[in-house]
């Protein structure tokens, strides 16, 4: 009796997982943009992982556990690389975080709130652009030196060694400047790309005809 119950449960679970993979496949085919396809691939990978886990649980073998780890890593790396490819902010503007909302370099990592007290940082961009040395031409000294000993005090705007915060990680053994300065040599393709003009830049109103929201009165997709 319990064997029948068990078999039914197993069959039901397999059917559900297979269905979810097939539906995600539909989204891969149909998805109006590459990002849709990427997240659908994630869902397929997750279904495969659940299926593999179920297989391991019910058939008495645990040697497939590293496969789960590898699949998880594949999903993650794939998503991140595709989204970096799509977004314009992959072209490196040294001295500022790519695509950041404020003018904020890697050396200002532990920015306290007290020093950024205006609304939405309009004057912040002014002060911090002055604080950057040799705007755009080379790395600021503190970034090239490596990031460490950044004070967490109320006076720290750029890197100032006021106190030693509790840090986990290396002090400047290797010179990360060597690694970081290799990055601004961005691929020349990035130069030609405007806003989201990858090979699949997506339609203005990326809509596959299924409206599940309120009717739009005015499409603002062309604003950007």
């Amino acid at each position: 009796m319990s064997q029948i119950v068990l078999d039914t449960l197993i069959v039901a679970a397999s059917v559900l997982l297979a269905t979810s993979a097939i539906i995600a496949l539909y989204r891969i085919v149909r998805g109006p943009s590459i990002l849709d396809r990427m997240i659908a691939t994630d869902v397929v990978l997750a279904s495969i992982m659940c299926g593999l886990g179920g297989f391991m649980a019910l058939s008495g073998r645990t040697d497939l556990l590293p496969v789960l780890i590898v699949l998880a890593m594949l999903g993650f790396v794939g998503s991140v690389s595709v989204s970096r490819y799509v977004s314009k902010s992959d072209s490196m503007t040294p001295g500022a975080e790519v695509g950041s909302l404020s003018d904020f370099s890697s050396s200002d990592w532990h920015m306290p709130k007290e020093s950024a007290d205006d609304a939405e940082g309009d004057s912040d961009t002014g002060t911090r652009q002055q604080a950057q040395s040799a705007v755009g031409e080379e790395w600021p000294d503190d970034v090239a030196r490596g990031i460490s000993d950044v004070a967490d005090g109320p006076d720290a705007i750029t890197v100032q060694e006021d106190e030693e915060p509790v840090t986990v990680g290396l002090d400047q053994g290797t010179d990360p400047g060597a690694d970081l300065s290799a990055e601004p040599v961005a691929d020349p393709d990035a130069e030609g790309e405007g806003m989201g003009t990858g090979p699949d830049s997506g339609p203005e109103d990326s809509d596959d005809g299924e409206r599940t929201g309120p009717e739009p009165e005015e499409d603002e997709g062309g604003r950007r």
């Binding site: 991140v80 970096r84 314009k88 739009p216 997709g221």
Partner: peptide, 15 residues
Amino acid sequence: MVGRAGYRTKHLRRS
């Protein structure tokens, strides 16, 4: 990352 890429480029439906 996917959300940020989707927001900044044209994949967003503002409606």
